[in-house]
Design a binder for these strands. Structure first.
Length: 863
RNA sequence: GCCCGUGUGGCGGAAUGGUAGACGCUACAGACUUAAAAUCUGUUGUCCUUUCGGGCGUGGGGGUUCGAGUCCCUCCACGGGCACCA
C-alpha cells in the first residue's frame, strides 16, 4: 500500500468549510432555479426571531430543512429554499429600555450577527430573497393588506375585555396567556376594557376545521390540536319562558336530555345576573365573590362549584313543571349564550352542582350494556322517561328533540365554535402600525392608498411605560384624509403573528427586490403551497392556524388563489441536555461537572456535590445549553450537522451528548481518510465513466458483494431520506463506509468499482455534511460541484437477494440457519434444515405435525 | 378529567407478522507505538455452560397466530396538548 491510512493528516475543516461557503455564495449556487421544466419544491423552515444568537435548536431545525432542500435539488427539483427574519416584537423594546438602544438598531445588528452564524452552517439558502418583517417594504405592504381585509369586512374594532399584562404594559392574545400569566413576562394577567382591532378568523372557522381532514401531510397530533382549538359544537338554542318578563335562552349540545333537566344556570356575567345584582345584595355579594376567584388554570380546575338561587323559575318546555334558575360560577359568559339548562344525571358539572345544592337528579338515559347505574352517565344509551324520545339512542334523540323544539317555536339549531376572533392590537412601538386615522368628526377612517405607508417614527423614547407611539409628541397628530379636520393616528401596532402569517408568500416573489409587488400572483402560483414546512411543535396552534386563516383571507381579497399554505408539515423535537444543580438549587453548566469513580457527580472546581437532574430542553436558565459557535470552531459544521440528525429520529427530542458529537467528528475524519487514501491509490473521476461499464461477473466474489452492498445502500439511504428518517440514512451511510474499509486491500485492482461507489457515497453524504463532500468531489476530479449533482440510482439487479441465510425454527424458536439460494426447492430446503444437529436435537423423539415454509423468510417445524 | 404520543441492552436507537438489538455512543481487548494519543480490527442484552450449546429477554397480564417488539383486549409508567366550551 502506497499510503498508510493511519498516517493521513486530520481533515482541516475550518479551511475547507470557509472555502466552499464562499464558493457557494459567490457563485450563487443556491439561487432559486427558474427552470420551468423541473417540478417545484418549496422547502421552508419557520423563520427566526433575531434574539441575538443562534441556538442549537435552530441548528437542528435548519439542518433538517437543508437536508431536504439539498436532497430535492439532487433529485431534479427546482427548489425554493429561502431565509428571513421575524423581526418585530417585544424583546427589541425591552432591549431598548435596558441598553438604551433603538429597537431598529438592536434588531438589525442581531440579524447581522445571526446571519454570520447561519452562513457558517453552510445552508443552501437563496440569500437574494432574504428579508426581515421590520423592513419598511414589508410592513408597508402589510398595511395595504390590512386595508384590503378592512374593505372585505374581515377587520373590525370593538371594545372588549382584554388580557392586560401589567409588566409588559401590553395586551395579550388568549393564546399568549398561559395559566393566567403573560407568556413572556410571567406576570399575572389582569382584565381591562379597551377598543381593539380584530380579524374575523371566525368567518373561516368551518373551513379551517374541515380542511384539516385534507392536511394529510401534517402530523396527526397537530391536526387534533387545531381541531380542539377550533372546537366546533353542534346543538341548539332553547328559549325558556321565565317568571320575569324576559325569556332565558340557553345553548345545549344535549337537547336529548331535556326531560332530565332540573334547573337552569346563568353565568355571573349574564345580563340578567347583573340586573338582579342591582337590587339584591346577596346576589351582588355572590357576583363579587366569584369575580375575585382564582385566575390560574390549576386553581380553576380545583375550584368548587358555587351558585345562588335567583328565585326566578322557568317553564319546562314539555312538562308542566317549573325549573329554578341559579347563577353558577361554572357557567362561562363567553361561550354559547352564557346560560345553560342542567341535567345532573348526564353531565358531570351539573351533577356536582346538584349534589352540592341538593337539587333533583333525574335519569333519562339507560346504558346500552346492562346495569350500569352509576351517575353521572355521559355515554350513549337508550332514552327513558322522556315522552316522545323514549327508546331512541342519544343521536336519534338529539335530532328529534331539536326538531320538536323548533316545531313549537322555542328552539333553533345552532353551531358554536370555541375559536374567537383574533385580536391583533398591540400597544407597542416595534410592530407594524395600523393604517387607520381616528377623526373627531368622521370617526374611524382607513388611510387612502396614497397616504401609505405609515412608517414608524425614529425618535421615540422608552422612558415611560406604555406605548411610545402614544406619547410621541407629533407622530400621531394628522389631518383627517376625508374632512381635513383634526385627527390622530391609530397608535396600536399589529400582533407579530400577522407578520408571520404571510411571509412565505413574500418568499415566492421571483423579483424579490421589487417593493411594489410583494405578493406576486404568478410567483405565488408557481411556488405555493409550501411542500415541506419544518418547525417546532410549539407553533402547532397559533402560528399555523393564523397562517392558514390569513392565506384564506388573502384569497378572499383576490391576492392569491391558494387556500392552504402548508402541504406537508414536519415538527422536529427539541434538543435536550442533562441538567445539574447544586444542593442549594443553583443550576450549573454541564462543563463544570465531573463524574467520579464512585459514581457521584461533583463540581470540578470545588468538589461540591452536584445533583443530576433529568434531561430537559436546553435553556439558558437551566445552564444546559451548548454554544453552536464553539462547536463549529472545534469540530466544524459538517460534524455538527451530522450529529444533530444522527441516532435520533428528527421528530423526537434529541439528547445532546458530547461523546456523540465527538463520534461524528471521528466519522468525518474517517471519511476524509477514505477519500485521501482512495485518491492516493488511483480512485478518480476518470475511472468511472458510468456504472454500466462495470463487468459484474468478472469481479472477485468479495468485490461483487461490495458492489451489491453499495446498491443496497443507495436504496436504503434514498428510502430513508424520502421518509425524512435522517437517522436511518446516516446509519446506512456508515454501513457503506464500513464495507469500503473492509475492502481497501483490493482498491487498486478495482478502481472502477471503488470510483463509482465513492462518487455516489460523496453524493449521498452531501445533503448532510456538504463541505467535506464538496472538497472530496473536487479532489477526485469530478465535474462541477456535488451540491448541484444528481442523486445516485440503484439497480434492482444488484439489490435483489440471491442467496439467503434462512432461519430455521422449531416451534417458533430459532434453532439454526442455512445458506440457500432464494429459489431453492422447498424439499431440498427442508432436507437441509432437518440435517442441522440443533434441529435434530430439538425435534428428537417428537412428531413433526406441520412444516411451515415462507419463501425467503423462514422455516418452522411444529412438533 | 378528556385527547394524543411513547415505553426495546449501560445509553441514543434499528427491525413489510418471520434470525430482536442494524448503526452509533460507552466500556473492554488485540494490532500499531519506546510510550501515549490517534488509527485499524474485534468483543459488548442477560443467565447457565470449559467448549458445543441452551434458558430468559422488547413496561405488566391475557389473547389471536406455525410464529408477536409489531395485531387485539386490559392494566401500569412517563411525556405532551386541552381543560368547567354545556
Amino acid at each position: 500500500m502506497s499510503l498508510d491510512i493511519s498516517e493521513i493528516t486530520p481533515y482541516n475543516f475550518s479551511v475547507v468549510e470557509k472555502k466552499w461557503q464562499r464558493f457557494w455564495l459567490e457563485n450563487k449556487c443556491f439561487k432559486t432555479s427558474t427552470d420551468s421544466s423541473k417540478p417545484k419544491c418549496f422547502v421552508l423552515e419557520m423563520f427566526m426571531y433575531p434574539s441575538g444568537k443562534v441556538h442549537i435548536g435552530h441548528v437542528r431545525n435548519y439542518t433538517i430543512g437543508d437536508i431536504i432542500a439539498r436532497y430535492k435539488i439532487a433529485n431534479g427539483f427546482a427548489v425554493l429554499h429561502p431565509v428571513g427574519w421575524d423581526a418585530f416584537g417585544l424583546p427589541a423594546e425591552n432591549a431598548a429600555l435596558k441598553n438604551k438602544r433603538h429597537p431598529r438598531e438592536w434588531t438589525y445588528q442581531n440579524i447581522q450577527t445571526m446571519k454570520k452564524q447561519i452562513e457558517a452552517l453552510g445552508f443552501s439558502y437563496d440569500w437574494d430573497r432574504e428579508f426581515a418583517t421590520c423592513d419598511e417594504e414589508y410592513y408597508a405592504y402589510q398595511q395595504k393588506i390590512f386595508l384590503e381585509l378592512y374593505k372585505k369586512g374581515l377587520v373590525y374594532r370593538k371594545k372588549s375585555e382584554v388580557n392586560w399584562d401589567p409588566v409588559d404594559q401590553c395586551v395579550l392574545a388568549n393564546e399568549q396567556v398561559i395559566d393566567g400569566r403573560g407568556w413572556r413576562s410571567g406576570a399575572v394577567v389582569e382584565k381591562k376594557m379597551l377598543s381593539q382591532w380584530f380579524l374575523k378568523i371566525t368567518d373561516f372557522a368551518e373551513e379551517l376545521l374541515s380542511e384539516i381532514d385534507r392536511l394529510d401531510g401534517w402530523p396527526e397530533k397537530v391536526r387534533i390540536m387545531q381541531k380542539n382549538w377550533i372546537g366546533k359544537s353542534e346543538g341548539c338554542l332553547i328559549k325558556f319562558k321565565s317568571s320575569i318578563n324576559e325569556d332565558i335562552e340557553v345553548f345545549t349540545t344535549r337537547p336529548d336530555t331535556i326531560f332530565g333537566a332540573t334547573f337552569v344556570a346563568l353565568s355571573p356575567g349574564h345580563p340578567i345576573s347583573k340586573k338582579l345584582a342591582e337590587k339584591d345584595e346577596k346576589i351582588k355579594a355572590f357576583l363579587e365573590s366569584v369575580k375575585s376567584g382564582p385566575t390560574t388554570t390549576e386553581a380553576i380546575e380545583k375550584q368548587e362549584k358555587l351558585g345562588i338561587d335567583t328565585g326566578i323559575t322557568v317553564d319546562h318546555p314539555f312538562l308542566n313543571k317549573k325549573l329554578p334558575v341559579f347563577i353558577a360560577n361554572f357557567v362561562l359568559m363567553d361561550y354559547g349564550t352564557g346560560a345553560i339548562f342542567a341535567t345532573p344525571a348526564h353531565d358531570e358539572r351539573d351533577y356536582d352542582f346538584a349534589t352540592k345544592y341538593d337539587l333533583p337528579i333525574i335519569r333519562v338515559i339507560k346504558g346500552n350494556n346492562g346495569d350500569d347505574d352509576s351517575l353521572p352517565f355521559t355515554e350513549d344509551g337508550i332514552l327513558i322517561d322522556s315522552d316522545f324520545l323514549n327508546g331512541l339512542n342519544v343521536a336519534e334523540a338529539k335530532k328529534k328533540s331539536i326538531d320538536k323544539l323548533c316545531e313549537i317555536g322555542i328552539g333553533q339549531r345552532k353551531i358554536f365554535f370555541k375559536l374567537r376572533d383574533w385580536g391583533v392590537s398591540r400597544q407597542r412601538y416595534w410592530g407594524c402600525p395600523i393604517p387607520i386615522i381616528h377623526c373627531e368628526k368622521c370617526g374611524v377612517v382607513p388611510l387612502p392608498e396614497d397616504a401609505l405607508p405609515v412608517l414608524l417614527p425614529e425618535d421615540v423614547s422608552f422612558d415611560k411605560t406604555g406605548n411610545p407611539l402614544d406619547h410621541h409628541p407629533t407622530w400621531k397628530n394628522v389631518t383627517c384624509p376625508t374632512c381635513r379636520g383634526k385627527a390622530h393616528r391609530e397608535t396600536d401596532t399589529l400582533d407579530t403573528f400577522v407578520d408571520s402569517s404571510w411571509y412565505f408568500l413574500k418568499f415566492c416573489a421571483n423579483d424579490p427586490k421589487n417593493p411594489n409587488n410583494l405578493l406576486d400572483k404568478n410567483s405565488i402560483a408557481q411556488w405555493m403551497p409550501v411542500d415541506q414546512y419544518i418547525g417546532g411543535v410549539e407553533h402547532a396552534i397559533l402560528h399555523l392556524l393564523y397562517a392558514r386563516f390569513f392565506t384564506k383571507a388573502l384569497a378572499e381579497c383576490g391576492f392569491t388563489k391558494i387556500r392552504e399554505p402548508f402541504k406537508n408539515l414536519f415538527t422536529q423535537g427539541m434538543v435536550c441536555n442533562n441538567t445539574y444543580r447544586l444542593e442549594n438549587g443553583d443550576w450549573v453548566f454541564p462543563s463544570q461537572v465531573q463524574k467520579n469513580d464512585n459514581g457521584d457527580y461533583t463540581l470540578i472546581d470545588t468538589g461540591e456535590k452536584v445533583i443530576v437532574g433529568r434531561s430537559e430542553k436546553m435553556s439558558k436558565s437551566k445552564k444546559n445549553v451548548v454554544d453552536p459557535d464553539a462547536i463549529v470552531s472545534t469540530y466544524g459544521t459538517d460534524a455538527l450537522r451530522l450529529f444533530v440528525v444522527s441516532d435520533t429520529p428528527p421528530e423526537r427530542d434529541f439528547p445532546w451528548s458530547d461523546e456523540g458529537l465527538e463520534g461524528c467528528w471521528r466519522f468525518i475524519n474517517r471519511l476524509w481518510r477514505l477519500f485521501v487514501f482512495a485518491q492516493a491509490n488511483g480512485v478518480c473521476a476518470q475511472k468511472c465513466s458510468s456504472n454500466e461499464t462495470i463487468e459484474f461477473e468478472k469481479l472477485q466474489q468479495n468485490i461483487q458483494k461490495l458492489y451489491k452492498d453499495y446498491h443496497t445502500a443507495v436504496k436504503n439511504i434514498t428510502e430513508a431520506l424520502e421518509d425524512r428518517a435522517m437517522n436511518k440514512a446516516v446509519a446506512y451511510i456508515r454501513e457503506l463506509v464500513n464495507c469500503l474499509y473492509m475492502n481497501l486491500d483490493n482498491i487498486k485492482e478495482n478502481l472502477p468499482v471503488f470510483s463509482v461507489i465513492i462518487r455516489d457515497l460523496i453524493k449521498m453524504i452531501a445533503p448532510i455534511s456538504p463541505h467535506i463532500c464538496e472538497e472530496a468531489w473536487n479532489m477526485l476530479g469530478f465535474n462541477g460541484i456535488v451540491s448541484e449533482n444528481s442523486w445516485p440510482k440503484y439497480d434492482e439487479r444488484y439489490t435483489a437477494v440471491e442467496t439467503i441465510n434462512l432461519p430455521i425454527q422449531v416451534n417458533g424458536k430459532l434453532r439454526g440457519t442455512i445458506d440457500v439460494s432464494i429459489d431453492e426447492k422447498e424439499e431440498i430446503i427442508f432436507e437441509k434444515a432437518l440435517a442441522l444437529q440443533t434441529v435434530q436435537n430439538a425435534i428428537a423423539g417428537k412428531n413433526i405435525r406441520k412444516k411451515v415454509f415462507v419463501k425467503g423468510k423462514i422455516i418452522n417445524f411444529v412438533v
